[in-house]
Design a binder for these strands. Structure first.
Length: 271
DNA sequence: AACCAGGGGTACC
DNA sequence: GGTACCCATGGT
């Protein structure tokens, strides 16, 4: 029983390529598939702003509406961007349809631990390899769910290194042990203010400011957090003369950051 | 504070 | 088919 919705500021391809999620893929010209919540969802772009989701209305209401953050008004928050910031305005025009997802904290934490010194394709490969090895099967899909913390906590470092995780293997193991033991409660810390949430995430070995900021932005909807990776470092240095613009961006700095990230990574194509 | 980590992606030859 | 450099970094 699929669901069809009319949406604005929603482009599955933009979201897939944006580098915030690693298990969403294009399966043909109009359909994207993602694994989350132990399920497989397909989204088909029908045209005219209409999209078909392969889920029930109840699942849309309980899971996917929040996941895609469909109740946040992008027209309004993008209109609030500084009008005299030419590069940001251009990035927003080019990134039309890009949204910040509200992903599951555990998978997001692992994804950005793995992202260290990897490009998007390599991160995707690591996530799929991890899921194939230790994730639970999903009925009707060839892809597995992302592995539960307890399952990874039961692995040895050597087993994780054998999947190609490299020096990140002990970081994943530390995160899995903390979460599986309850020492780090990813649901409970959602109630913390930004600084305390940041500190809680950075207790994990292998999680620095940048990875913690990504988890806060892409899983906990902390829109003020603006992660600074190599691309955003280039934006700050080459476009803004070394002075970070994010302090002046207000409550949606992290969302603007995402448009700048995609704009910089995709290069200097005109307008 | 410079230096290192594992390995796939990519451009260029 | 080589190979040199890059990649949503963090620890030491």
């Amino acid at each position: 029983m699929p669901v069809t919705l009319t949406l604005s500021h929603f482009d599955p391809e933009q979201i897939t390529q944006s580098g915030q999620c690693f298990r969403m893929v294009g399966v043909d010209g109009s359909t994207h598939e993602l694994i989350a919540f132990g399920r497989c969802l397909r989204v088909t772009t029908l045209g005219g702003g209409r999209y078909r989701f392969t889920c029930t209305p109840a699942e849309m209401a309980a899971l996917w509406r929040a996941y895609f953050d469909l109740d946040t008004d992008y027209a309004a928050l993008l209109a609030a961007a500084p009008p005299d910031d030419a590069f940001l305005q251009q990035a927003i025009r080019r990134g039309h349809g890009l949204r910040i997802l509200r992903q599951e904290p555990w998978e997001t934490l692992c994804g950005f631990i793995l992202s260290q010194r990897k490009n998007l394709k390599a991160i995707r490969l690591s996530m799929e390899t991890l899921a194939a090895a230790y994730g639970a099967p999903i009925p009707g899909s060839a892809r597995n769910a992302f592995p539960a913390p307890a399952r990874l906590a039961a692995c040895t470092e050597a087993e994780l290194r054998a999947l190609g995780l490299g020096y990140r293997a002990p970081y994943i193991l530390d995160a899995a042990r903390r979460v599986a033991s309850g020492a780090l409660d990813l649901a409970a810390i959602a109630a913390l203010p930004d600084e305390a949430l940041l500190a809680a995430l950075m207790q994990v070995n292998g999680v620095g400011m940048k990875v913690a900021d990504c988890v806060m932005l892409f899983a906990y909807a902390r829109y003020r957090r603006a992660p600074v990776d190599v691309w955003i470092r280039r934006v700050i240095d080459q476009v803004y003369g070394g002075a970070s613009p994010f302090a002046g961006y207000g409550a949606y700095a992290g969302i603007y950051q995402q448009y700048l990230f995609v704009r910089m990574r995709d290069g200097d194509v005109s307008v």
